[in-house]
Design a protein around this nucleic acid. Structure first.
Length: 488
RNA sequence: GCCCCCGUCGUCCAGCGGCCCAGGACACCGGCCUUUCAAGCCGGCAACGCGGGUUCGAAUCCCGUCGGGGGUACCA
């Protein structure tokens, strides 16, 4: 909340009191976690200060543009709960406007036409042994527009600086900036031009984006100044999200698709919560908390400028906490897309929900915890069978005694039984099978193992008494009998 | 190469000149609890890159150095 005052610093008056921010994805891939991180920061700032969070689709690259991906981006933002204001702006709709501004610069002399081919530029750079990049060859040639000329910005002398909310003062000597291209020879406007123009057009007050845009910022600023357009009141360059090799997260190497995380059973609350923790931490140290609180506490000025490792383990931990905090009915509803179709799986999960919630880190893990309840023959973990039934001590005795004790309980129970009675019966089984400790107490851990594998197919799972209570006497006894037979 | 940014436990975050022989979280290790597995609780391991300065006093300020990253397209 301390940061609230920041919105007013350097503004000219009451008009810009509430921040106007934007998320500007280019539809060249699925929304990835790095973009989501930026989108979240923008959204938080807008929601915190009663501002507006706008969307702009940067679709000016006709080559790589994949319109169908726009829908993925929007869907993921919706899933994350990062709702936007107004209709998304499509950059490609404003091309005429962009071109007009570029021509205006050509007219004013702040930009000039250049017919150098890329190879020529490179060759000259190599020849003079200097740094690669454009050398200003056409600066004074006074070329006219043609279908083989690109428009380049005439970088002025001086120093370009700005105050970054995350990084403090940042400055560039303009001599280190090359005369970059504004308009391709095809007439298509370039990213930097379009980006700056559209931000001005949309009245963006706070440009919040990844650190990879730092180097483009002086050019962005220079363009706005050449056109006498209003500059944003603040910039914030967020830390990059990196992989274990400390490299920027990339689509090729890393698991970055938000859609994939959703498919893995991450809760959007957990995703947003975890993302907020990269580069920032709440002042009170409470990490897992509702987004409403994060909105209140988030502060760009407190964001750590160094790169942050996207730690899957911690993400999963946060997700586990969120899953455990869910109301059981809500948990079942959210996990249902991960269940096989039909009423049975849903009912099985509902019957065991609280016990399952405590044991999974993702929704996708839930079905395997209760599949023995709806499957006629649950998949058998051979290693578990071998350990508990073949090599396990007194396995036959346990099964025999179980058939006996649980059979008696079933008869008394008239088709159903309760967990406490199952527990008592297994205690008697342990004693019968000789599984007792020095004090003569039944060793429940040992006794439950063969029964668990025989009835659920696995060595681990939810508490057995409750599991068998839901499974019911008929199926429990049938499976115990089958296991006994298989053992021989 | 050049430009820019960054540098506290393995990882994320706290620390903004004395409260720090550095705190929390994840991971890891041990213990307790316990019908398995989890969860929970208790405990442990583990960091201020290095060198100079400034100061009575530096993780905190300055300089340098080393290291890492990002950018350097008629991609966005």
């Amino acid at each position: 909340m301390q940061a609230a005052g920041l919105w007013h610093v350097g503004t000219l008056g009451s008009v810009t009191d509430a921040p106007v921010v934007r998320f500007a994805p280019s539809p060249t891939g699925f929304l990835h976690v790095g973009s989501a991180h930026s989108a979240l920061a923008n959204w938080l700032v807008a929601r915190q200060a009663g501002g507006r969070f706008l969307l702009r689709i940067e679709d000016t690259d006709a080559e790589r543009n994949r319109p169908e991906l726009i829908e993925n981006v929007l869907e993921m933002l919706r899933w994350l709960g990062l709702g936007w204001d107004d209709e998304p702006v499509h950059q490609s709709d404003r091309t005429d406007e962009h071109r007009r501004a570029a021509l205006e610069m050509a007219e004013a002399g702040t930009a000039y036409w250049c017919d150098c081919a890329g190879e020529q530029v490179q060759a000259r750079a190599q020849e003079r042994g200097g740094p690669p990049g454009y050398d200003g060859h056409c600066r004074r040639r006074g070329l006219d527009r043609s279908d083989s000329t690109a428009l380049r910005f005439r970088v002025p002398e001086g120093t370009t600086r700005w105050t970054d909310l995350v990084r403090g003062e940042v400055s560039f000597e303009n001599t280190t900036l090359e005369d970059f291209v504004l308009l391709r020879s095809s007439g298509a406007p370039m990213f930097l031009l379009v980006n700056a123009l559209d931000d001005a057009h949309m009245g963006i007050t706070h440009v919040i984006r990844g650190e990879d845009h730092v180097n483009g910022t002086p050019k962005y600023l220079l363009i706005l100044r050449a056109l006498s357009l209003d500059e944003p009141t603040a910039f914030a360059h967020l830390p990059l999200l990196v992989n274990e090799g400390r490299k920027k997260l990339s689509k090729r190497r890393d698991d970055v698709s938000v859609a994939d995380y959703r498919a893995e059973g991450l809760l959007p609350e957990a995703m947003v919560n975890y993302l907020s923790l990269l580069g920032w931490g709440p002042p009170d140290g409470v990490e897992v908390r509702p987004v409403e609180e994060i909105i209140e506490l988030y502060d760009l000025a407190a964001v750590n400028p160094s790169p942050a490792f996207f730690d899957r383990d911690k993400l999963l931990h946060v997700n586990g906490e969120w899953i455990r905090s869910l109301d059981p009915a809500d948990f079942v509803a959210r996990a249902s897309p991960f269940l096989p179709p039909g009423d049975e799986p849903a009912q099985a999960l509902a019957a065991m929900a609280p016990l399952v919630q405590e044991r999974v880190k993702t929704l996708a893990e839930a079905p395997a915890m209760v599949d023995f309840l709806w499957m006629e023959e649950p998949p058998l973990d051979e290693a578990a069978w071998d350990k508990a039934l073949v090599r396990g001590r007194a396995a036959r005795e346990v099964l025999d005694a179980s058939l006996d004790e649980l059979g008696r309980l079933a008869e008394a129970g008239d088709g159903a039984w309760v967990a406490a009675d199952v527990s008592d019966a297994v205690a008697r089984v342990a004693t019968t099978a000789g599984l007792v400790n020095a004090e003569g107490r039944p060793q429940m851990a040992k006794a439950q193992a063969p029964i668990r594998v025989a009835t659920t197919g696995r060595a681990v799972g939810p508490p057995l008494w409750e599991s068998l209570a839901v499974l019911g006497p008929t199926r429990t006894l049938a499976r115990l009998g089958a296991a006994r037979e298989r053992l021989g």
